[in-house]
């Protein structure tokens, strides 16, 4: 049987104040240092590798090895009116069925319909897959002269990866090239 605690014990436990001044000193120094070097905005980068200076596509075509390669040369052009999608052979036509109309017109209010563009590109990706194109992962981005940089970055976001129906992230066209100004 457990003992009953003694009724006589009335000794008070004296509270000893914790001396936290050294810790406080440390904190006061550490917080400004860390605040100074803290990263509040997370930065990220988009890689864009240019062909080395001095070689151009024209130079490559003279090379017999590359002449045999099949190139698709998928191009997306951003214009004020929407996206044009095409390759060397020609451009996709939009609802108006003329090549002068963008394949995916911009939405009202000046925003671009990136989701539709992505759907269209996924379709193209499925079609050209395993057909022996050497550039099946690359895409050329071009734009009108006054298209803003943020739209180009946004476009890069949408065309590099996509999430399929099963929720897996897949590569769409991760190799981005920049084409000339239209």
């Amino acid at each position: 049987m457990a003992f009953k605690p003694s009724q006589r014990s009335h000794t008070k436990i004296r509270e000893i104040p914790l001396d936290i001044r050294p810790v406080m000193n440390l904190m006061v120094c550490l917080i400004p240092i860390l605040l100074y070097s803290a990263e509040f905005v997370k930065l990220s980068i988009r890689e864009l590798n240019l062909p080395p200076a001095g070689t151009s596509d024209r130079g490559n075509q003279n090379n017999p090895l590359t002449e045999q390669e099949k190139r698709f040369q998928l191009t997306v052009i951003i214009s004020k009116r929407g996206f044009y999608i095409g390759n060397r052979a020609g451009y996709l036509t939009g609802e108006a069925n003329t090549q002068a109309e963008p394949a995916i017109p911009a939405m009202e209010g000046g925003n671009y319909d990136f989701e539709r563009l992505r759907q269209q590109l996924i379709e193209i990706k499925e079609k050209i897959k395993d057909q022996g194109f050497v550039d099946e992962n690359s895409i050329i981005i071009s734009a009108e002269a006054d298209i803003e940089y943020k739209h180009i970055i946004r476009l890069m976001d949408y065309i590099t990866i996509y999430t399929d129906a099963q929720g897996n992230e897949k590569e769409l066209f991760p190799q981005i090239n920049i084409g000339t100004v239209i």
Binding site: K42, L43, S44, I45, L48, N49, L50, P51, A53, I153
Partner: peptide, 9 residues
């Protein structure tokens, strides 16, 4: 020729 376009995550 290796460009890194800086963006905000």
């Amino acid at each position: 020729d290796k460009l890194r376009l800086l963006t905000i995550r």
